[in-house]
Design a protein around this nucleic acid. Structure first.
Lengths: 230, 230
DNA sequence: TCTCATGGCGATACAGCGTATTGTTCCGCT
DNA sequence: AGCGGAACAATACGCTGTATCGCCATGAGA
């Protein structure tokens, strides 16, 4: 019985690990959004049956948690910059960029506490930026305020982006884009300030808008630091 | 053939309308969260088949939009208060309270543009509070910043609330509550600032935390107003 | 070297989902 | 009186997350 007679041993299935699973899930989400991530499709990408995944995750939500943690690795900058303000600003902007690269992240951002290694690292980096510049409680308030801001801002930005994509491609022209409905509503005269804003407002690009709001908030933070611990 | 002989006409089904549909959906969501809102269950509450709903909505997402707009009615205060700062503050706090009454709102907040009548009314009220106090673009930046903040803050608050509920009921004790995982991670020494924060930080109640961050931001807004139009 | 237990894995199954399609039934108009 | 059309119900399809079960390859022990 030579080698040639013996059949190859039945190919043991490619071993799986969380890394590969999460990578597949992220790829799917990048291509078709969160809702096109199904355990079946993820498994299929790895030539496995759906049930195989349950050795590594207990629930679909857990997979989402892993996905979030995975892309949070992209948030941390290579090197921490010098002053607290730049550090926070960089973290915020990198979070935004990550969310624009993985739009589904916007759906998950802030939805659950991020306790994974990368999530903790991001939190650590944020806290570290302000470490020693004020009492702990002030620091925490600052961190929470800043991150609440960019969570919300990113979410809205992505939401608007999708809405624009859905109605056609007009970036300008709220009115014509969002269909006659808004136009009609504004015409009722019940929303004078809104009408004025829509009519006269300059169309600021999202990035500057994001940066401006962030700057305001960092200003506010600045005034609470440095102030001696009373 | 008297009335008594004639059988009652076959009970025509109770007429449906969006209001009743949305009310049923909101009730369902209040009881069991967003994920327990299914078209079948909503319809069942109204003694109807699932397909009946499609006369009033085209898609489940539309139902969600209607639900959001419905509860946004709870945000508008009875009377607009005097100064811009209080107006914005009240709107933010009322949004928060609404989200605490309807936790599922946190899942939807900021997820899609709110173009319904109540949504527009809320936007109008927000813009109106600042109307005339600065050039339009500054006003818009302010509105967006403030609402990005409270969107994010509310989301996180609800997320934490759920996490606490899930792990048991300990409000304090991050560590023991979130299980050994966080404890172990902190013990690695890779997150010094975070450890310090968890260890030494006072446990601020969510409402004050929310209010404080909001105040900071309103301070920041204040410094951009009043400043004469250059 | 043979045997048996073990544990990973695939298949199957189930209940539920959103929605398309297809009947059916009744109302109001001509 | 009869008919057109709309409102409504039933059925069906493809998909979902997950529980369960039975198999079979592998490694340990005799």
């Amino acid at each position: 019985m030579t080698v040639w007679d013996r059949p190859e041993p039945p190919t043991r299935p490619v071993p799986l690990d969380r890394e590969r699973i999460v990578a597949a899930a992220v790829a799917l989400a990048d291509e078709g959004g969160l809702e096109s991530v199904s355990l079946r499709k993820v498994a299929a990408r790895l030539n496995a049956g759906p049930m195989r995944l349950y050795g590594f995750i207990a629930t679909k939500e857990e997979l989402f948690d892993l996905m979030v943690d995975e892309v949070q690795a992209e948030i941390l900058p290579e090197e921490q910059p010098g002053d607290w303000r730049e550090a926070l600003s960089v973290l915020a902007h990198r979070t935004r960029q990550t969310a624009l690269r993985h739009e589904w992240l916007a759906d998950l951002l802030g939805g659950r506490p991020t306790l994974g290694p990368n999530g903790l690292a991001v939190t650590e980096a944020t806290l570290a930026a302000l470490d020693g510049l004020a009492d702990i409680d002030t620091v925490m308030r600052a961190v929470e305020t800043v991150s609440a801001y960019f969570t919300g801002a990113i979410r809205r930005e992505v939401a608007n982006l999708r809405a624009e994509r859905a109605t056609g491609l007009s970036e300008r022209d709220w009115q014509r884009a969002h269909g006659p409905h808004v136009t009609r509503m504004l015409a009722t005269g019940r929303f004078p300030s809104l009408s004025k804003a829509v009519h006269d407002g300059t169309d600021t690009d999202p990035e500057t808008s994001f940066a401006t709001g962030l700057d305001w908030i960092l200003d506010a933070v600045a005034t609470r630091l440095n102030r001696p611990p009373a």
